[in-house]
Design a protein around this nucleic acid. Structure first.
Lengths: 255, 255
DNA sequence: CTCAAAACCTGCGAATCCGCAGGTTTTTTT
DNA sequence: AAAAAAACCTGCGGATTCGCAGGTTTTGAG
């Protein structure tokens, strides 16, 4: 391995990111909206939480394989993840994106013994892994956790059905705008650029169209000064202005 | 009211259908797959089950209004129902169909205080209504019911996300075929005709296309001897043959 | 810094899909 | 049984969307 200066710094920064705190615990975790934190399981039953595994997942690594036996579920401690289904003719459909505090692989429950989705890290990410057995144990011991998880599913279901409707009724332009707004809500912007590395293809796979169409729409939006770009990075100047086009005939719905 | 012979018989048969048994109870109910039955709540806590209301809902009646305050949830004791969301430009998107034993309005949980969907009876139907308070009471008292409801949501979520993918990737013809197969799975056939009264418009609103396209596809399918029609009724001769067209490049998924 | 690979962009022709318009058939009402 | 309403059907022009093909720019590795 060659220690070019830049690379060395990069590697060190990676180590710092992933290793500090060396082994994150639920007690010290900052993701307050995480379903584990919310249920105050931290104080009442640390014995369960110590059984979880911490996994460092490198960028691009596929840590949940569609069709593989369910291994339990993951929480994103820190990082960014895409969740996808491989569909007709092998075409990928990105179901959602997730960042710190969110659950991945929860569809494993109930839907048989195989994962219905695949999950890939969009950047180096730290994941908390709970085995199925551990989750079942926790759920059995804590009805309020089961109830919370149920509510979470209910909300996800609403979002998914809203998305069905969007796919059925929106034009490609609207779907792309809607996707950009979603990405903005999910990851935010840094220096006026969306704080995540996505290819046009990935945006297309999320929006339900093709790479070319996304590129065309982005070109138009740029000409109309609704967005600006720097390489593959995209920035939304005025979120309200961009959303006005789809909220006109819509009842403003999260996807 | 004029008692033409045919009409009279029709009315009487309606009364028989809706009034016998006079007041259906969970104990005598035949819907074994109902989540209440499955949890053996019938034996252990009849005091809850007596608090439910039985509602007779006439054909075409809108018993859940999108946007209205959540009033609890319904089970279809006997009958057929469509569940829809009003979407962009007032266009209706039919989310799913339901028949005996199925839950309606479960999305009321967690998703705020207003129904996200509307529900309309496709024929005279008998509904069991549980108030929100009653449901919360039952869920609190019976963790296994909460768990089962959670699993139910998980499966619904899978189905919904599969549908997102279909809408994103299928052609209109495929979506119509897929919808016909779904309707067949849900309601079955009687005398080689789908056992439910749906307009072409309703099929379109479910499949995510327009009435005209559905009519065109149905014409083609009829010419190709894949289906036959009698008035507005549709019959599928050979389910496997019809499904072969979409299962070729698909992994055979329920919607 | 240089080079190769990946990602991005654009034009164009074809395929698909939509919506109107007007006519026919079926269903429902009177 | 007749009339009215609803639902069904079809042709056609236009709009949208797609996918290929080939070129340009950006990114990342050495």
């Amino acid at each position: 391995m060659i220690y070019v200066k830049n690379k060395y710094i990069y590697v060190v920064s990676k180590i710092i990111t992933s290793m500090t705190p060396v082994k994150p615990t639920c007690t010290t975790c900052a993701n307050e909206q995480c379903i584990i934190k919310k249920n105050r399981l931290v104080g009442s039953m640390p014995e369960y939480l110590e059984k979880k595994n911490i996994v460092l997942c490198r960028k691009g690594k596929n840590f949940i394989l569609e069709g593989a036996p369910v291994q339990g579920l993951y929480f994103v401690h820190k990082g960014k993840v895409k969740v996808a289904k491989t569909g007709l003719n092998g075409k990928e459909q990105i179901v959602r994106f997730a960042s710190s505090g969110e659950i991945i692989g929860h569809r494993g429950f109930g839907a048989g013994q195989f994962y219905q989705i695949s999950a890939v890290a969009l950047e180096d990410s730290l994941l908390c892994h709970f085995s199925s057995a551990l989750m079942y144990e926790m759920l059995q011991h804590t009805p309020s956790l089961t109830f919370d998880l149920m509510l979470f599913y209910a909300e996800e279901l609403n979002r998914s059905e809203t998305k069905v409707r969007k796919f059925a009724q929106m034009t490609v332009r609207e779907k792309v705008i809607d996707s950009l707004l979603y990405i903005n809500r999910k990851f935010g912007q840094y220096k006026n650029l969306l704080n995540v590395q996505l290819t046009r293809k990935e945006i297309a796979d999320f929006a339900g169209t093709t790479e070319e169409q996304v590129i065309r729409i982005l070109s138009s939006l740029k000409k109309e000064k609704l967005i600006q770009t720097q390489g593959k990075k995209i920035g939304i100047d005025n979120v309200l202005l961009l959303s006005s086009e789809i909220s006109e005939h819509n009842f403003f719905l999260d996807s």
